[in-house]
């Protein structure tokens, strides 16, 4: 199924990390596309901006943010959105994504992707906020399903249903992180495949893959390792349902060489072919 936004399948991309800048500038590896963290470049000139501009000249790029805070109750930060918009224009970014979460209230930023209570009230509030943000950016926003470690006693919606309803109410798209589904399913005790099957497939333009850290009692979404088999199985199922999606591999802690990260991203191709063959 194609996504309803008419966005292309960019192939298998890699999250842009500064530790890989020298390798990329020297070797110009054959990567399908890059995703970069918006906030790392919004206010910075100098070498980071230079490198990003060179990369954006050669590869398709997509912006992924961590401070849009669509689940906050603070006023929308239009200064932030203005900078986001200018950066998107400069880099000719294909789409802009962030997370279904809040990062702070009362003007503070915890710099964490904090989970929301899934209630009728929060659904209405987030949908309105997403509409305002999309209008400001003049493009749809793509929201990533979060990984989380707590569930609230006040929640009355399952996360997958909340996301589905949010897309309908706000017009937003989804960035489906299959590792996050797995992490949260272990932490909260739900069936990850059932979650995946409730996601509206035509709203998904991108999939995230990453490794995590299993602590026994819970799983931390650390992006610090290879993708585990259970997540690859979820990816295969996701691809069966969502054909025109771009795939991105994230690696943020103990980041190995670019070639290792890129090879992990390209593994996704094997699961896609398995999906076709199935």
């Amino acid at each position: 199924m194609a996504n309803r936004f008419g966005l292309p399948d960019l192939g298998f991309g890699v999250g842009l990390r500064t530790v890989h800048f020298p390798h990329i500038l020297e070797c110009w590896p054959k990567v399908d596309w890059f995703e970069f963290l918006s906030e790392n470049f919004m206010d910075r000139g100098g070498r980071p901006a230079y490198v990003l501009d060179r990369i954006a000249e050669r590869y398709p790029v997509v912006m992924h943010g961590v401070s849009m805070s669509v689940g906050s109750t603070d006023p929308v930060n239009f200064e932030y959105l203005g900078k986001l918009k200018r950066l998107a224009a400069r880099t000719r970014t294909r789409w802009i994504s962030d997370h279904l979460c809040w990062t702070g209230v009362s003007g503070l930023n915890t710099h964490d992707l904090l989970p929301m209570p899934y209630t009728d009230e929060s659904l209405r509030d987030v949908a309105e906020r997403v509409r305002v943000i999309s209008d400001c950016l003049e493009r749809p926003v793509f929201l990533e399903n979060p990984s989380s470690y707590v569930e609230f006693t006040t929640s009355t919606w399952e996360e997958a249903d909340f996301l589905a309803e949010l897309t309908s109410l706000s017009g937003c798209g989804l960035l489906l992180d299959v590792n996050n589904i797995y992490v949260s399913s272990f932490n909260h005790g739900f069936d990850p495949m059932a979650y995946l099957n409730r996601i509206p497939a035509d709203r998904v333009a991108q999939i995230h893959l990453a490794g995590h850290t299993h602590k026994g009692t819970h799983i931390l979404d650390t992006h610090s390792d290879h993708v585990v088999d259970e997540v690859w199985r979820l990816y295969r199922r996701a691809y069966e349902r969502m054909a025109a999606v771009s795939t991105l591999l994230e690696w943020d802690e103990a980041v190995p060489s670019f070639d290792v990260v890129h090879a992990e991203a390209r593994k996704a191709g094997l699961y896609r072919r398995a999906s076709y063959a199935a």
């Binding site: 915890t110 710099h111 707590v150 006693t153 005790g189």
Partner: peptide
């Protein structure tokens, strides 16, 4: 009062994941 327990963790232990990560990360 506000956080559900999981099968393996009490509410305060689940909250402590965020509390611990905040300081470490920043």
């Amino acid at each position: 009062r506000w956080i559900k327990p999981s099968a393996r963790m009490a509410p305060v232990e689940r909250l402590d994941i965020y509390r611990g990560m905040y300081e470490v990360r920043l």
